[in-house]
Amino acid sequence: MTRRQDFLLGVLGAAAAFGACEAVSRAGIVRRAYLPPASEVLARAARLAGDRAFLDGIGVTLRAWALGLGLACAIAVPLGLLLGAVPVVEAAVRALIEFLRPLPSVALIPLVSLLLGSGTRTEVTLIAYASLWPVLFNTVYGLAETDPLAKDTLRAFGFGRVAVLLRVELPATAPFIAAGVRISASVALILAVATEILSGFGQGLGIFIAEAQTEPDGTRDVLAGVVWAGVLGLVINGVLVGAERRLFAWAREPGPAQRKPARSRA
């Protein structure tokens, strides 16, 4: 299936979901107070694009998202390389990692707020904590998938451990790291909005949604905020997927065993 076909099918699916929500609301199956027509929600989301205060809140959310994701990558990539390269270290911290990984970040909001206070530091810390795991495990997995023949070849020519890491292991692991970053980017956006909603302080897209929930007729604004969150996630994912395709096109090429055999000419 080509990219154009994927795009057209995605547009068709979105149009079908839009039509279903519009029909359900217009037909009165669900009260408009609970599910406004999709056209009204999209119109409200479009008008928010001209609201300076709303756009400032979007900027605050994206800044926390970028800081948290950057911090997670700065920690996860070196730590993943260390765990993947030194089995003794990986075995020593495995139990701790498996204990920390299932802890939901939103459940840590009271504790982190108590330690760091309210504001951007708390939000960035929670985002970094949740975003760290996909990058970490993808780095470890990618390092384990490195071609052992390439490593042995460099060692045979007298290259040391650091040279093997920089010349073979890190380039081979880079596509796995990029995939982990793409997954973590979505997780970071979810945490950025959720932390703002649950904490109830500061500024951002989550604060807009939380405040709209308290309004008598705020469902439309809540859904408009959700639409903006979805659009941000779609744009971020699209940018990262495009970057992956450009930077690691070689990793997507089929190997000799996967290529179709050439047809013999009669």
Rank of each mutant, 00 (worst) to 15 (best):
V41Q: 00
A194Q: 11
G84L: 03
A249S: 09
G28F: 08
G204L: 03
G57D: 13
V241S: 10
G233L: 15
A38I: 03
A16G: 11
L116D: 09
W228S: 00
A130Q: 15
R101M: 12
R52K: 11
W250G: 04
A229H: 05
T173I: 02
V241C: 07
V11N: 04
V41Y: 00
A66W: 04
L166M: 14
W65Q: 05
L35M: 11
Q203K: 12
F18E: 00
A188F: 13
L55G: 08
A53T: 14
L143I: 10
A53E: 12
E211R: 08
L189G: 05
I197P: 03
L205C: 13
V88P: 06
R121P: 01
W133M: 03
P171S: 14
A150F: 06
G206T: 02
T173M: 09
A163T: 11
A33G: 14
P102Y: 02
N237L: 05
A66P: 00
W133G: 05
T125K: 10
R44T: 10
G180C: 05
V24L: 04
F176K: 01
E145G: 04
D152V: 00
I190W: 08
A74P: 01
I75R: 01
L82E: 00
L48G: 06
G70C: 09
R155C: 05
A107W: 11
G158I: 06
T173E: 08
V187I: 13
R26L: 05
G204E: 02
P256G: 00
V222R: 11
G13P: 00
T122Q: 11
L166A: 15
V140I: 15
T153K: 06
S184W: 08
T214I: 01
S39I: 13
L149V: 13
I209Y: 00
D6G: 14
T120W: 04
L12C: 08
G202K: 11
T2E: 12
G180Q: 03
T2I: 13
K260W: 01
I75G: 02
L132Y: 05
E98Q: 15
R63K: 11
R220C: 04
V164R: 06
E123W: 02
S113H: 06
R26S: 09
Q203N: 12
I190Q: 12
I127W: 04
A85M: 11
A20Y: 15
G218W: 07
I183K: 08
E123A: 06
Q5E: 04
G84V: 10
I97F: 12
A130V: 15
W228I: 01
A179Q: 02
T153R: 12
G255Q: 08
A45Q: 01
T153G: 03
I58W: 02
A179W: 00
E40Q: 14
R167W: 03
L108Y: 08
G80M: 02
F208C: 04
R220N: 06
R3G: 15
L55H: 13
R94P: 03
V11M: 10
P37H: 14
A229I: 07
V124L: 11
A74N: 08
V106T: 13
V11Q: 05
G80L: 03
F54E: 02
E211K: 07
Q258G: 05
A92Q: 11
F248Q: 12
A85L: 10
P87Q: 01
V112D: 04
L111N: 11
